[in-house]
Design a protein around this nucleic acid. Structure first.
Lengths: 238, 238
DNA sequence: CAGTGTAGTTATAGTGTGTAACTGAAGCGA
DNA sequence: TCGCTTCAGTTACACACTATAACTACACTG
């Protein structure tokens, strides 16, 4: 995470302090959500006095952005690990990826909410967020590339094909992940499935993580499995 | 909303001031999200000085709770209006309800996030929230009561049936809405479909409302239609 | 060894929630 | 009508948090 190529002792010390600050911030995040990450209390804990933290982070937003980047990378790694050993059938692959996604979110609820929860107005995401968000969902493209869209999702595939025709960045991403050119129908299918999977996952996972299924007799895994199975049916995944 | 049966002039005055405060809070909410609702700035605007607001609301949480209650009622009314004139086919009915849900959320994004966004840790929802949340989704039960679950969603229906057997409050709710007894398979189908619809709607609508589809070539309506069509297929809605 | 950059300090400003103690007037019963 | 109570509203204050400014002291570099 923190580049260990720090040359001078000063740089090393700096990196170490930055790391300590982030570690405490991460704990505060886990305990009370983003809202609970407070520079003053971090400073007290790390043994510095208030404004000293501004030597290490430009401000609270900068610190949160750093946590957000790490969270995206961590989530992408978790989903990526599942993607690296996908089972043969696309449907089983989709389930494996969805389980990995839910598993990470359930293990790190506040970090999930940090990247997927409702953004606080006033906070603007760092520009590299799009790439990182794509990285999380990347493995899903490979699964849906093998789909054969049914009626329910055909309008989305059509819209996605149109999008791929005009957005070079999205086309390049799909090409890198699947090797499919933006003219290929399968590219649009892959991307459409990924977006729909993201939407479905987000719905169930965020409700689960915020405890809104509490008091209902549902296991989150069962709900998620139903969503992904319905999606797999809609994409004709075998 | 505000009971107009206030007897004494004092009560009337009080209700009026409460209304003014809520109106300003609502505007601040619309402009900057829940985080932007600040008692001090409300006080300045209404011409009072700070602590005076505590005569009208026990605190910031109390004011937000009041806005939350109103938002639930408003959302329930919007979905309920669609539910009152449902078309013949259950699938068309599901689409109409989903459109009404999305329509309300898109028209009032910050109020939608207030009730469905990630809750701020530290804030605890008022106890009558469950009833209000149920009221929003109520019309969906009638649509799914006519479903015939396919493989993808059968495990959820089974879990729901078990839940209905043990939770009298949930059973009573379904009975009131659909007239189905908790032993009836259709009761479990209705409730399972509603929970899955809630999850799918929440996923797509909250991503749309927080602008996370921006830059993608998707219309939210198309994505939502695909989700609901897939769900309709999974429940065999004609 | 002089000069520079940087980690750290205190002081201060600003914004927000919330409590305490007081003031003054409206409402009300005898 | 007098006097008590209730309540809207005030100022003063405590506390938490973000952030900037101005200063100090040390370490590194030429």
């Amino acid at each position: 995470m923190a580049s260990e190529r720090a040359s001078t002792p000063r740089d090393r010390y700096r990196e170490q302090t930055r790391g300590e600050i982030k570690a405490i911030a991460l704990r505060q995040l886990a305990e009370g959500g983003a809202q609970a990450v407070a520079l003053t209390r971090i400073a007290k804990e790390v043994g510095l006095s208030g404004p000293a933290l501004y030597r290490y982070f430009a401000g609270r937003d900068d610190l949160l952005s750093s946590l957000i980047r790490d969270a995206y990378d961590d989530a992408a790694a978790a989903v990526g690990r599942a993607g690296a050993r996908l089972p043969g059938s696309p449907r089983a692959g989709l389930h494996a990826l969805a389980d990995a996604y839910l598993g990470w979110a359930a293990a790190e609820p506040q970090r999930y909410l940090l990247i997927q929860g409702s953004p606080v107005p006033g906070y603007s995401a760092p520009p590299d967020t799009l790439d990182r968000a794509r990285a999380v969902m990347g493995p899903f493209t490979e699964v849906f590339a093998r789909g054969e869209p049914r009626d329910a999702v055909r309008p989305v595939v059509a819209e996605t094909a149109e999008w791929l025709r005009t957005d070079e960045s999205a086309a390049a991403w799909i090409r890198d992940r699947t090797g499919l050119s933006s003219g290929d129908d399968r590219a649009a299918t892959a991307l459409a499935g990924t977006v729909l999977a993201w939407s479905a996952l987000h719905g169930t996972v965020s409700l689960a993580v915020t405890g809104q299924y509490a008091g209902m007799g549902h296991r989150t895994e069962t709900l998620l499995r139903a969503q992904t199975d319905a999606l797999a049916d809609a994409f004709g995944l075998g």
